[in-house]
């Protein structure tokens, strides 16, 4: 008897759990971030497609999404798509690395040494007040419209956010933690490696992400100025050949690879900053 009862309750519990799971699954479908997040874009895209087909938007100004998609697919089949994406990504990547390396070197010097701060910081701050795009003509004049002027351009854009965040990260390290290191007899180099660097890592990563964002912005500017390849070149091409689908296709590709590169950095950030006590939504 007792055994039966036990079985009975266990069956009931099992059923209840199943029901709960189902209910949970249902509500999960509707609140799942991917589904919730793509709701609005899907609706808007459908509307856009319908209105374009009804020729509410003239096709020489705003072609239908399917037309744009077709443009992308055609470029893909021709093989030009890969070339354009490749060259643009290469420029951003090279500029990003160059800007970051210079920022790390100068930023660490300024962060660690008072005299370096006095030497470099006023000048860097002064240069910062120049809108970076204003350099474009000068760089082109100096280096021509080849790769080097473009990459320098992008590096300048990446440099500032990375530099500023490194400096503020290093200067912002909690003095109390440095004292802990001093109590254990760490010398300056050890203090830097074991305390100051890990403590300023969050700030550095913030700098990298905003630097990368600016890198994508600057590659557009650089490629608009004169390029024969790249997504920015597609923008100019679209404008000159009166084909808005090429322009919009390029914009969409920019959005996608920009997002992917940011996602990679974000993953790295989450990996290396898992110790942080952050507000979880």
């Amino acid at each position: 008897m007792a055994k039966n009862q036990g079985e009975l309750t266990s069956v009931l519990v099992g059923r209840n759990a199943m029901r709960k799971k189902k209910a949970k699954f249902k509500s999960y479908i509707f609140t799942h971030p991917v589904i919730l997040g793509s709701l609005l874009p899907v609706v808007l895209l459908s509307l856009w497609e319908i209105l374009s087909r009804m020729e509410v938007f003239p096709s020489y100004q705003l072609p239908a999404p399917t037309v744009i998609l077709q443009t992308i697919i055609e470029m893909g089949q021709e093989g030009t798509l890969v070339t354009h994406i490749g060259i643009t990504t290469y420029r951003v990547f090279a500029g990003f690395i160059l800007g970051t390396v210079v920022a790390v070197v100068l930023g660490s010097l300024v962060g660690f040494y008072k005299n370096a701060e006095k030497l470099f910081d006023p000048m860097i701050q002064a240069f910062r007040s120049i809108p970076s795009l204003a350099w474009v003509p000068l760089f082109i004049l100096w280096m021509g419209i080849g790769e080097s002027s473009k990459i320098t351009m992008i590096a300048v854009g990446v440099f500032f956010p990375v530099y500023l965040n490194i400096v503020s990260g290093i200067l912002g390290v909690d003095r109390k933690l440095i004292e802990v290191g001093k109590m254990y007899g760490l010398n300056t180099i050890q203090l830097i490696i074991r305390i100051i660097l890990p403590a300023s890592l969050p700030s550095f990563l913030v700098g990298l992400r905003s630097g990368l964002g600016l890198g994508w912005m600057f590659v557009v500017a650089a490629e608009l100025m004169g390029a024969s390849q790249g997504l920015g070149y597609l923008l100019v091409l679209g404008q000159n050949t009166l084909s808005p689908e090429t322009i919009i296709a390029s914009i969409i590709l920019f959005a996608i690879i920009g997002k992917i590169s940011d996602w990679v950095l974000k993953k790295i950030e989450i990996r290396s900053l898992h110790w942080q006590d952050r507000l979880v939504k």
Partner: peptide, 10 residues
């Protein structure tokens, strides 16, 4: 110290 002062990344 008066406060723990642990290194948050370790």
């Amino acid at each position: 110290f008066q406060e723990p002062r642990l290194l948050p990344w370790l």
